[in-house]
């Protein structure tokens, strides 16, 4: 495995460890509702600080169940991950294409390889 790939995997592993450790160590056990959202806890804190406070506006649309909500969150993550993957895939493909075009033109035109390589590099976008 290449050194840079190893470092990238280690970075992912560290993130996973940071997420899993609180669960494994049972850091939520002291709570009535372990690992609830901090946003929700803030709402509870507000009602404690100011018991008379009534939210004066409610969401226009509220997911009817936890399942629908998690589906929409998954959709959000999927859209983001899809666009990121498209970007990196496109970049990788372009680089490979350039390298291949360069390799093809080199034996005929010498080392400059101006034609295909530069043309695809300067293409504004696709």
């Amino acid at each position: 495995m290449k050194r840079s790939t190893r470092i990238n995997l280690l970075l992912l592993l560290a993130v996973a460890a940071l997420a899993v450790l609180p669960l494994v160590l049972g850091l939520g056990d002291h709570k009535e509702e372990p690992f609830a959202g901090a946003d929700g806890e803030a709402e509870t804190a507000i009602t404690e600080l100011d018991p008379g406070y009534e939210p004066w506006f409610s969401p226009l649309y509220e997911p009817p169940s936890g399942e629908i909500e998690s589906a929409l969150f998954a959709l959000q993550a999927a859209i983001g991950a899809g666009v990121l993957a498209y970007y990196f895939g496109l970049r990788r493909g372009r680089r490979q294409g350039e390298a291949r075009a360069l390799a093809r033109t080199e034996p005929e035109h010498g080392p400059a390889g101006e034609g295909a390589g530069d043309e695809s590099a300067s293409r504004p976008r696709s």
């Binding site: 940071l18 997420a19 609180p22 669960l23 850091l27 939520g28 056990d29 002291h30 709570k31 372990p34 690992f35 609830a36 959202g37 901090a38 946003d39 806890e41 969150f73 998954a74 959000q76 993550a77 859209i79 983001g80 991950a81 899809g82 666009v83 990121l84 970007y87 990196f88």
Partner: peptide
């Protein structure tokens, strides 16, 4: 891609040391 990164990360609710998720 930068916008997409924000989309992914703000959808990831992760457990933390305080016993809650953010």
């Amino acid at each position: 891609a930068s916008g997409a990164f924000t989309f992914v990360l703000s959808a990831l609710k992760l457990p933390s040391v305080t016993g809650s998720c953010s």
